[in-house]
Design a protein around this nucleic acid. Structure first.
Lengths: 71, 71
DNA sequence: CGAGCTATTTATAACTG
DNA sequence: TCAGTTATAAATAGCTC
């Protein structure tokens, strides 16, 4: 989606990769939440950026336990 | 997206909810995989349908361990 | 029903200040 | 860099068979 079509492969340019990561991470989280609400499903989502930062979403009946993100 | 706009709240009609679940689950899995590839991130996604069926995606460096889906 | 079809909405790639 | 804009690609709600 967007002004150009992109192939699904690693984005080489670091800046573009960071920007895409931020935007798509937000979109994915939003859609995870919507699926949980619309369909009464339990959804758990964990995302680690390549720099090791953690982002997550979990619906109310689900718990995500991260034991060691770096292993 | 689609022919009509929908509010983000539980879909009451069972059949519609099942159809939406199937479609959106597929979309969410696809986007999780794309984020992992495009941005070199680790992504883990778990979805339980309201009937308890499990669907998941995890990128190569991540392992999802389900201890007990029903608890 | 389940699989496929589009009219629309939504997400987002590239652009801009 | 960074938040905001916009043109376009992609997802999908309701429909069709």
């Amino acid at each position: 989606m967007g002004r150009g079509k992109i192939a699904i492969k690693r984005i080489d340019n670091t800046m573009n990769r960071q920007v895409t990561f931020s935007k798509r991470r937000g979109g994915l989280m939003k859609k995870a939440r919507e699926l949980a609400i619309l369909c009464d499903a339990d959804v758990g989502l964990i995302v680690f950026s390549c720099t090791g930062r953690l982002y997550d979403f979990s619906s109310s009946r689900l718990v995500i336990i991260i034991v060691d993100p770096l292993l």
